[in-house]
């Protein structure tokens, strides 16, 4: 028996910091444009001096809108069987970033547009080997 491990769904997207969960992105110090995930260069056509530095985003945001996904997504997305509908939202962060993420709820149909939400790192699915694969989600507070 091997001990089950927890693995992030992708490297360098999010982290559990001393202050709590954060999204790992970058920000252009010239024009203040935020990027998630990290960008190598500023994409703002009006910015004449791309200067990107690492930035952490979260945990607070507002749910701009949401949907409930009633059917399983096609590959390469993975989920626990049997499939259970979940909410997906567009979350506006005070840093000027609009992020796509699953909304963490007990009942996805109780999601409310415009609600205050908070970043969490949670299980996305459990692999056939028993490893927990985690992703970033936003929880309705």
């Amino acid at each position: 028996m091997t001990t089950p491990t927890t693995t992030p769904v992708a490297e360098g997207l999010f982290a559990e910091t001393a202050a709590g969960p954060r999204l790992l992105g970058s920000k252009c110090t010239t024009c203040e444009t935020p990027y998630f995930p990290k960008a190598a260069i500023c994409h703002n056509p009006n910015c004449n001096d791309s200067k990107l530095e690492d930035a952490e985003f979260g945990p607070h945001g507002k749910l701009w809108s949401y949907t409930v996904q009633y059917y399983p997504p096609p590959p390469p997305a993975k989920y626990d069987e049997p499939y259970k509908p979940y909410a997906i939202g567009l979350i506006d962060l005070p840093e000027g970033l609009r992020v796509l993420a699953q909304v963490s709820t007990v009942d996805p149909e109780s999601t409310v547009g415009g609600a205050d939400v908070e970043l969490v790192i949670e299980r996305l699915y459990t692999s056939p080997e028993g490893n927990e694969v985690t992703t970033f989600k936003f929880r309705q507070s």
């Binding site: 769904v9 992708a10 997207l13 996904q69 059917y71 997504p73 096609p74 590959p75 390469p76 997305a77 993975k78 989920y79 979940y86 997906i88 796509l100 993420a101 699953q102 996305l124 992703t135 970033f136």
Partner: peptide, 8 residues
């Protein structure tokens, strides 16, 4: 986006 959010 597909792997981390699962969004068709």
């Amino acid at each position: 986006r597909q792997v981390s959010v699962g969004m068709p």
